[in-house]
């Protein structure tokens, strides 16, 4: 009889664990809510939201094209160009990193291990911070944006590239060696043909991420559509904010479609 009640009740340790976790969660959320300052919102939020809504419903169409420059189309074009260049810079410069970090390209474990560590360090730096550092170094503008995207993307792209290299079929490599090929020739004829399509596909995928980032780079001064957006936000020109956001959404949807089509064709 005693056994029955024992098995029906959950073991005491698991109940304790449940309550400890619950208490911990409550404590965490209690603490987290403290950080949000809800007071003082109501005053302005209502009227501001209303003006925003009217702004979004009546976008400033005249901003789309202004002959003297600094218009929506040019901003979007700059954003697109920054992300294309940034992706290409990353896609090329990450190749040596990828070979460094892939375990089947070096005999010593320490070589690929150190490469992987370097790549994860690059990955944890948010690109916006990289962008700010480059702005400080080379001045504000598209150039800083390109460098920021290029450097930041290396972390992820090289990791994906390295995984591709690690997964290749070692057979052709052996066959090329047996033909009397040297290391470079093996690379060119056995390794590259196997990995290039995958590399391209990953780069295009990264481009999709980069174009989203590129829209924000301008917020800190690194060129592109973000610059007019932050100006419009600062002067509360909601009609202009509306048209810029609309433009960004359209640009991203369009590039997603194109890059999706490209990626399907490559593989």
């Amino acid at each position: 009889m005693k056994l029955d009640t024992d098995t029906l009740q959950r073991p005491i340790s698991s109940r304790i664990r449940f309550w400890v976790i619950a208490a911990l969660m409550i404590a965490i959320y209690y603490w987290a809510i403290q950080g949000m300052q809800f007071e003082g919102l109501q005053k302005t939020a209502g009227s501001v939201s209303k003006s925003i809504l009217t702004g979004f419903l009546h976008p400033d169409w005249s901003f789309v094209y202004i002959p003297e420059g600094e218009d929506l189309l040019r901003g979007l074009l700059d954003t697109l160009v920054i992300s294309i260049l940034g992706t290409v810079v990353a896609a090329v410069t990450c190749i040596p990193f990828a070979f460094w970090a892939s375990s089947n390209m070096s005999r010593q474990w320490a070589v690929s291990g150190s490469g992987k560590v370097v790549l994860s360090i690059i990955r944890v730096f948010p690109e916006i911070i990289v962008a700010i550092l480059f702005i400080k170094a080379v001045g504000p503008g598209s150039f800083a944006g390109v460098l920021a995207l290029g450097i930041h993307s290396i972390g992820m792209l090289a990791k994906l590239y390295a995984e591709t290299i690690e997964n290749i079929d070692p057979g052709p490599e052996e066959a090329l060696l047996a033909c009397g090929a040297n290391r470079l020739q093996v690379l060119r004829y056995a390794v590259l043909p196997q990995v290039i399509p995958q590399f391209l596909s990953y780069s295009i995928y990264r481009f999709e991420i980069n174009i989203r980032s590129a829209t924000t780079l301008g917020l800190v001064g690194a060129g592109g559509i973000g610059t007019p957006l932050i100006f419009a936000l600062q002067v509360r020109n909601w009609n202009r904010v509306g048209i810029i956001l609309l433009g960004i959404i359209l640009l991203i949807i369009l590039t997603d479609l194109v890059s999706g089509w490209l990626r399907k064709r490559i593989i």
Binding site: D169, P172, G180, A181, Q185, P193, Q194
Partner: peptide
């Protein structure tokens, strides 16, 4: 090695390359 051809159980071709490219790679 250039004078010794080798044939493997798993063929060891670069599957994505054309047949001709694979054969040509024997000439490197």
């Amino acid at each position: 090695r250039r004078d010794i051809g080798m044939i493997f159980q798993s063929f060891n071709l670069v599957k994505r390359s054309t047949v001709l490219r694979n054969v040509l790679s024997g000439r490197v």
